[in-house]
Every structure is written in structure tokens, then in C-alpha cells.
């Protein structure tokens, strides 16, 4: 590769370096806030959920929703299993804070963690689009667009190899 090709070939790498740093800083704060909530939680419930969320205005009050996803089954977890899931949730190496996948989250599992004050709901999707959405009044996403929508949801990608999904899958009964 000659000088000219090198110049521009590597500018591609060089230029986006900053973005990784900046985004990492922003999301890391929210991730830390989520981790704090998880640490303070006393109880973990595991649910199986439908893959499309329901608008809050259309939700059935007799059903359970986590991050607006309807739970259709609750999975029993022993205290040992709950502890393991909590440890996995607290493991920051399971999360990706600096980049995002441009795929749609199709979650299957949801966790409800009860803290002293309220609850933290987390829905999770498996590979190839492993992602998580967390909902709690303390978690915020930036205002979106000029429409100034503000959500109290936190979106974060999960690593391809993450222990959270693995543990949940080991707990969920196989059909």
C-alpha cells in the first residue's frame, strides 16, 4: 500500500476512535446506575415474554408487562440460581457500552428485580442480536431527535458470549 492509500486507508480507523471513547463515557454512566440498582436488589423474578411490546395505553391490567413486553410465563428460580443471575448481571464484561448493533431486539426473557424503593425490569434478547432494555425511573435515555421524546428506558448491547443469557437458558425448562 503506498503513502496515499495508507493515508486514507487508516484515516477511517483513526477518525472514529473518538466516538468509541465518547459514547463509552455516556453509556457507562447509565450502565453504572443500572449496576447500582442491581446490587441493591433483593429479589429476582424470571419471565418469558412475547417479542413485541405493547403500547402502555393498550395494556391489559390483568397481565404482567416488563418494559412493555407481555410476560406469558414465570420461571421458578432457586435462590442459588437467582444469585448466579445477579452476579452475571453485575459482570460488566457482559455488556457493550461503546457501540451498538443495528438489529432489532427480539427479546425472549425478562427479569424483574425488586429494590427497596421500586423495581428494575430488564428484557433480554439472544444472539445474533443480543441486547437488553432496562426500565427504572432512575435510568434515562437522551432526548431523541427534535421530537424531544425522552424515555426512561436504557438500551445496551450484550456481548455475543455473555453469561447472562447462558444462565437464563440453563434455568428455563426446555420444551
Amino acid at each position: 500500500m503506498n503513502f496515499t492509500q495508507k493515508t486514507f486507508f487508516y484515516i477511517a480507523i483513526f477518525i472514529f476512535g473518538l466516538s468509541l471513547f465518547i459514547l463509552s463515557s455516556c453509556k457507562e454512566k447509565e450502565l453504572q446506575a443500572m449496576q447500582t440498582l442491581i446490587k441493591e436488589s433483593e429479589d429476582i423474578e424470571l419471565f418469558l415474554i412475547k417479542e413485541t411490546p405493547i403500547n402502555p395505553l393498550e395494556q391489559d391490567s390483568n397481565k404482567t408487562y416488563l418494559c412493555d413486553y407481555e410476560a406469558y410465563a414465570k420461571v421458578f428460580t432457586s435462590s442459588k440460581q437467582s444469585d448466579s443471575i445477579k452476579i452475571a448481571l453485575l459482570d460488566t464484561t457482559n455488556y457493550i457500552a461503546d457501540v451498538e448493533k443495528k438489529c432489532m431486539i427480539m427479546p425472549k426473557y425478562a427479569l424483574r428485580l425488586k429494590t427497596k424503593k421500586d423495581t428494575l425490569d430488564i428484557v433480554l434478547s439472544d444472539n445474533p442480536c443480543a441486547k437488553a432494555i432496562a426500565k427504572n425511573s432512575l435510568l434515562k435515555t437522551p432526548k431523541i431527535d427534535k421530537e424531544k421524546k425522552k424515555e426512561d428506558m436504557f438500551y445496551v448491547d450484550l456481548k455475543t458470549e455473555n453469561t447472562i443469557i447462558k444462565l437464563i437458558q440453563s434455568v428455563v425448562p426446555k420444551k
Binding site: 477518525i15 472514529f16 473518538l18 466516538s19 468509541l20 465518547i22 459514547l23 455516556c26 461503546d98 457501540v99 451498538e100 448493533k101 443495528k102 438489529c103 445474533p128 442480536c129
Partner: peptide
Amino acid sequence: QVSWSNSVNGGF
């Protein structure tokens, strides 16, 4: 495959 992005620089 998935495609990657971030809010500062957009899609890779």
C-alpha cells in the same frame, strides 16, 4: 452478520 454503530459517528 450484524452491523455496528454508535451515536457519535453513526454506522461504521
